[in-house]
């Protein structure tokens, strides 16, 4: 192990972590904003609303994110009219292409998570709300969504961690993220073990920080579904909260 080479490269890794977190944050926020309406539509009883969303998530979840990124970065740039369009300043940026691919990808997965969580809301709660005379919108905003969003937390924490790892793909389209820093160190020092081990350690640190954040969030907003403490009468739902890493 060549620790000097690692220490020398640490500033590069720090910049890489910044880029990785930025990619992650922007695509998660944009993806979530897209996923909420998509997920509600996906859970809708009306096939004209749910089918198109199903098509979208089917296509995105059925193809690797790397292929999607290549299509956006290299594929779209092949067409002259794209290069002459007003969108080119955006699409010519590797960073933007990466964020676009990640956003479309996470939106599809998150929409399925949201739809699944909405279906998991006990129907009795919806019936009760109906019998109280709530409108469809009221049922959605007062009963379904608050419950579904809480239930979706454990599954969504997995998605966030998968996305963190997924951002490593940005390095193949020249973005200098954490993996890009490792590749750069590898190409300068010819020490692949040290280079990628350092990147691995950084990713692990980020992963466990995110896991910690979600544990805190679950403790705060999912208490009502946790098994009852200090009691033999365990009637609560046991949630598998450990994220799949």
């Amino acid at each position: 192990m060549n620790f000097d080479a690692i220490i020398e490269s640490l500033p590069m890794y720090a910049t890489g972590i910044g880029t990785t977190l930025q990619l992650l944050a922007v695509s998660l926020v944009a993806g979530l904003l897209l996923a909420m309406p998509l997920g509600i539509a996906r859970a809708s009883g009306n096939v004209w609303i749910s089918r198109p969303v199903w098509m979208y998530t089917y296509v995105i979840r059925g193809t690797p994110m790397l292929v999607q990124l290549f299509l956006i970065y290299y594929g779209v740039a092949q067409f002259e009219w794209v290069r002459l369009s007003v969108l080119w300043p955006l699409l010519s940026s590797a960073w933007f292409c990466a964020v676009l691919a990640f956003t479309l990808n996470t939106a599809a997965y998150t929409a399925e998570i949201v739809a699944g969580a909405m279906r998991a809301v006990p129907y009795g709660e919806v019936e009760a709300a109906n019998s109280l005379g709530m409108s469809k919108l009221q049922v959605l905003t007062r009963i379904l969504l608050p419950s579904a969003v809480r239930r979706a937390l454990p599954a969504y924490s997995n998605e966030v961690i998968m996305m963190l790892h997924g951002t490593a793909l940005a390095s193949v389209v020249t973005v200098m993220d954490l993996t890009g820093a490792a590749r750069e160190m590898n190409s300068r020092t010819y020490l692949p073990f040290e280079a990628f081990l350092t990147a691995g350690a950084c990713y692990m640190l980020l992963t466990f920080s995110l896991v910690g954040l979600f544990h805190f969030a679950e403790g705060r907003w999912l208490q009502h579904l946790a098994p009852r403490k200090n009691s033999s009468d365990v009637r609560g739902v046991v949630l598998a909260t450990a994220p799949r890493i």
Partner: peptide
Amino acid sequence: IVRYTKQDEVFLDLASGR
């Protein structure tokens, strides 16, 4: 400096103006 894994990727982005 924009670094690519392969030379043909440099050509693609040079041609597209990236």
